[in-house]
Amino acid sequence: MTGTARHGDLRIAYEVFGPPGGEPLLLISATDAQMLMYPAEFCTELVEAGFQVVRFDNRDAGLSTHLTGVRAPGPLVAALRPSSAPYRLTDMAGDAVAVLDAMGWESAHVAGTSMGGMIAQTVAIDHPGRVRSLTSMSSTPSVRIGTRPPLKVLRAMTALLARPVRSAEEAAGREVAIYRLMGSPGYPLDEDLVRSIGREAYDRHPPEPEAGLRQRAAVAASGDRRKSLGGLRIPALVIHGDADVMMRPKAGRATAAAIPGARLVMYPGMGHDLPRPLWPSVAGEISRLPRP
């Protein structure tokens, strides 16, 4: 089932997996990623673990509202002058809450990856009564912790994201190239799956480099969450890969250290992705979080 939530003038597209009786679980996506980054098969793993799952497109992604024509400052400018960012993570957290409202969920388990993990952290901080548990994956509590990939990787990633994509096949090829840079060296790349995500994402909404810049500006402008995370009193799980070149392992450790009682799961050989062989384990870890 698909739907559209409203947050002010913005439309937020979402998709539902599983029956209404499942524990509500909201999945929040990463920078430059549509909801498709959580494949339907992974969502099914979570449904089988007892959840009703919702994945959604962040603002400036997929079928949700794009702030086309709004210029974004570079990350350094956004960090030094947060007011220069078109929006911040707290606004994106509001989009997530709008999806909860559209689903009629008073509260939900909230999980996010990379920037999605930062948004999930912000939902828990800004709207604590709406969050049953927090799962932060491949993320960080501060843009200053663990976010410097090797220069070679950074240059290659920047070039890939800036390159125009003019067809679904080009999008599929670029997606594979991105995953080869940031993916899990301990697991084989599921190239067929990655290509299919790239094609479907292009068909839904072709890549728009400026949209990713606006999202990155939001991250840079949103500061350090460690002090606020220290005030959380909810079950929390931090999942990270020890081979993550985009968010170094110390970012995951810092997230877990900031949240009282958080459990850290560090997967050997996992990079800045969610390899298929780990789906059952990740679903199991999330399902073991205390439930009301």
Score class of each variant (00 low, 15 high):
Met1Gly: 14
Thr2Phe: 13
Gly3Glu: 02
Ala5Phe: 00
Ile12Asn: 01
Ile12Trp: 01
Phe17Cys: 07
Gly18Pro: 02
Pro20Gly: 03
Gly22Trp: 08
Leu25Val: 06
Leu26Asn: 02
Leu26Tyr: 00
Met35Lys: 01
Met37Leu: 15
Cys43Leu: 15
Glu48Thr: 12
Val54Met: 05
Asp57Lys: 03
Asn58Trp: 00
Arg59His: 11
Asp60Pro: 04
Ser64Arg: 05
Ser64Ala: 11
Gly74Lys: 10
Leu76Glu: 10
Ala78Cys: 05
Leu80Gln: 11
Arg81His: 15
Ser84Leu: 11
Ser84Asp: 08
Ala85Lys: 00
Tyr87His: 08
Thr90Tyr: 10
Thr90Gly: 13
Asp91Gln: 15
Ala93Leu: 09
Ala98Ser: 13
Leu100Ala: 00
Trp105Thr: 00
Val110His: 01
Ser114Phe: 07
Met115Gln: 13
Gln121Leu: 07
Thr122Trp: 00
Val123Asn: 01
Ala124Leu: 07
Gly129Phe: 09
Arg130Ser: 05
Met137Ser: 12
Thr140Asn: 03
Thr140Gly: 04
Val143Lys: 03
Gly146Gln: 04
Gly146Trp: 03
Thr147Gly: 09
Arg148Lys: 15
Lys152Tyr: 13
Lys152Arg: 13
Val153Ala: 10
Ala159Val: 06
Leu161Arg: 13
Ala162Asn: 08
Arg163Thr: 15
Arg163Pro: 06
Glu169Leu: 06
Ala171Asp: 05
Gly173Asp: 09
Gly173Cys: 07
Val176Lys: 07
Ala177Lys: 08
Tyr179Lys: 11
Tyr179Met: 15
Met182Trp: 04
Asp192Gln: 10
Arg195Ile: 01
Ile197Pro: 01
Glu200Arg: 10
Ala201Asp: 04
Tyr202Lys: 14
Pro206His: 08
Pro206Ser: 12
Pro209Glu: 07
Glu210Met: 10
Gly212Asp: 04
Gly212Ser: 12
Leu213Met: 10
Gln215Glu: 14
Ala217Asn: 02
Ala220Ser: 06
Ala221Ser: 05
Asp224Ala: 15
Leu232Cys: 11
Arg233Ala: 14
Val238Asn: 04
Asp244Leu: 07
Arg248Ala: 14
Thr255Lys: 11
Ala256Asn: 05
Val265Cys: 10
Val265Ala: 13
Gly269His: 02
Gly269Val: 02
Gly271Phe: 01
His272Met: 06
Arg276His: 14
Pro280Leu: 14
Val282Tyr: 02
Pro290Leu: 12
Arg291Glu: 15
